[in-house]
């Protein structure tokens, strides 16, 4: 029998027509669906943000053909308006501020809880974790509505605070429909998103590390800052991303709790699309919002990679 030196066909690792078919059968359906119902709509938005509004809402065509040939009707006007009108810049900055503050408050609120759950006895951990997830199962709007009740002018909290303020001779405040209400709402709906990744990280820490640190003379406090916290940075980053991005584009929370004083960029986008009907301008607003969100995710991914390098 002669030995052929040529490379044999490889039925498993290279592409025969059957393997190619299998590959498309698997990846084709999700790819096609998401291309049509996610990618193309997003691209349309990006394109539309360079257009003019139509006469009765919608878009005027970006290009058309007539006797004189092809016409292209692109404009940078929407972006110019956003960057020159102070109103919109302030709105973006305010939304960034809300998102950052939400992330900060969630971190501070979630850390002790995650730590307690991660260090609880194994049998209790799942129960404690379940207790975090259960409120999460209630409807999103209900969780916001709860704060309408708590902060409402008739509720005990408002009346108590205003009674004290009254004694000091200060004008009564309205807790609801305020930046404060937006903050509370955002933190409330976001908190579990910080707790879960933090817990998932802290739970993996080897208790021997802490014992080693204590053994080598670290106080409980420096143990935390030199061992636990640095090791949990990937969890913090994951949680921060999960909190920051939705908070930045929040719509329902400021819409329900914010009133006119607590308005965020998401509300303006909604108005441009459903009320003002200036779609190209709304498209530009949402494209910038998306760029900010993707930028944050990118920074987080970069930081996570660095963190992994630094802490192995």
């Amino acid at each position: 029998m002669s030995i052929s030196r040529g490379a044999p066909k490889r039925p498993f690792s290279s592409m025969t027509s059957r393997a190619r078919l299998a590959r498309w059968a698997l990846s084709g359906p999700p790819l096609t669906f998401l291309a049509i119902f996610f990618l193309i709509p997003t691209l349309i938005m990006a394109l539309a943000s360079f257009g003019w509004p139509g006469r009765e809402g919608g878009f005027s065509p970006l290009w058309y053909h007539d006797a004189a040939g092809w016409h292209f009707d692109f404009t940078l006007g929407n972006y110019r308006d956003i960057f020159t009108l102070r109103l919109f810049l302030v709105l973006y900055l305010r939304s960034l501020g809300y998102a950052l503050a939400t992330t900060g408050f969630c971190l501070v609120g979630a850390y002790p809880l995650s730590l307690v759950i991660a260090r609880a006895r194994v049998g209790y951990r799942n129960l404690l974790l379940l207790l975090v997830i259960v409120p999460f199962w209630s409807n999103f709007l209900i969780r916001i509505y709860a704060w309408m009740i708590i902060l409402g002018p008739q509720a005990a909290l408002s009346r108590g605070i205003n009674a004290v303020l009254g004694l000091c001779g200060i004008r009564a405040v309205n807790l609801l429909f305020s930046p404060f209400a937006v903050m509370m709402g955002l933190v409330y709906v976001s908190l579990p998103f910080m707790i879960l990744p933090l817990y998932a990280n802290l739970e993996k820490h080897d208790p021997a590390l802490l014992e080693a640190a204590r053994d080598l003379g670290a106080s409980a406090w420096s143990c935390f800052w030199r061992v636990t916290f640095p090791l949990s940075v990937p969890g913090v980053i994951a949680g921060a991303t999960l909190v920051f991005v939705p908070a930045l584009g929040a719509f329902a929370v400021p819409d329900i709790l914010g009133g006119t004083r607590g308005i965020m960029i998401g509300n303006v986008i909604e108005m441009e699309f459903l009320q003002a009907r200036d779609w190209p301008f709304g498209a530009a607003l949402s494209i910038i919002l998306t760029i900010l969100a993707l930028g944050a995710t990118g920074i987080a991914a970069w930081a996570a990679r660095r963190g992994i390098k630094a802490y192995g």
């Binding site: 030995i3 490379a7 498993f12 690792s13």
Partner: peptide
């Protein structure tokens, strides 16, 4: 589970 880039594997003289 894998195939060689070159060469042959024979079992009982069958490729």
């Amino acid at each position: 589970f894998d195939t060689p880039d070159e060469g042959r594997i024979l079992l009982d003289g069958c490729d």
